[in-house]
Amino acid sequence: MLGKLIKYEMKSSARYLLPLYVSVLILAVVNRLGALWLQNMPGSSTWEGLLMFFYVLLSISLFVVTGVGILVRFYHNLLGQEGYLMFTLPVSTSANLFAKLISAIFWIIASMLVFFLSVLLLTFSSTWQISDIIDWVSRTFSGFELGAVFVLLEICLLVLLSLASFVLLCYLSMSIGQLANRQKLLLSVAAFLALQVVISTLSVIFLSHNAAWLSTSISAWIDSMSPQAAIHGVLLGSCLGALVECAILYIPCWLLLKNKLNLS
């Protein structure tokens, strides 16, 4: 059932995100071609400027729309009228939550990849050759050991978990906001800010109390290992921390949707 939910979630978001992503890529290409063809024509700088302006605009909207879209999808589909459908489907509350979360992370990463790709297209030079690319890849990665691949994976995992925890923070804020009968949006924003404050405060308190103990034990631990292992240790430790943060945000969100769903 989770798979089906994810499928429908992706379909609904793709409807407005794919056209945007494709437009960004097309505009990047147009810009590149424009730069090539209009090079020596009079007034070309205004055209180029205009094209670049639209490209930048679209690129910014790429991230904005992806982000806002994630929030709106959650709000509209689970907490609005569509909630009557989603929560009467024979699926668990966690399935609904995970479908939204997974889809959100997917689109965030997709938006970054699309942007990266658009930059490549923008700066694409015909002098580039496949052999050049292969050379660059092998040179960059030749100095790395197997451990480096794992480090890369761990960094990716950390990024994913951090994204997840931020998205969950937004979901939790909205879940708190929907408790109100009026001004749900206002309460969501207030909850978001409040949660940020609480999290920062707790982190500061935790760190300040345990700073000495933590730094000595962590440095002792690191010293006892080789540099590579230490890096792994730090990264995995951070991943664990991010995972815990996700769990701390997920659980109240799940509880609120399960027990305090306030559909109009």
Partner: peptide, 18 residues
């Protein structure tokens, strides 16, 4: 729960479709 939702068909007052 999930099992009961399989045998219950609900029509709300307002539209609940996208």
């Amino acid at each position: 729960g999930i099992e009961s939702k399989k045998i219950v068909s609900f029509l709300p007052e307002k539209t609940y479709l996208n």
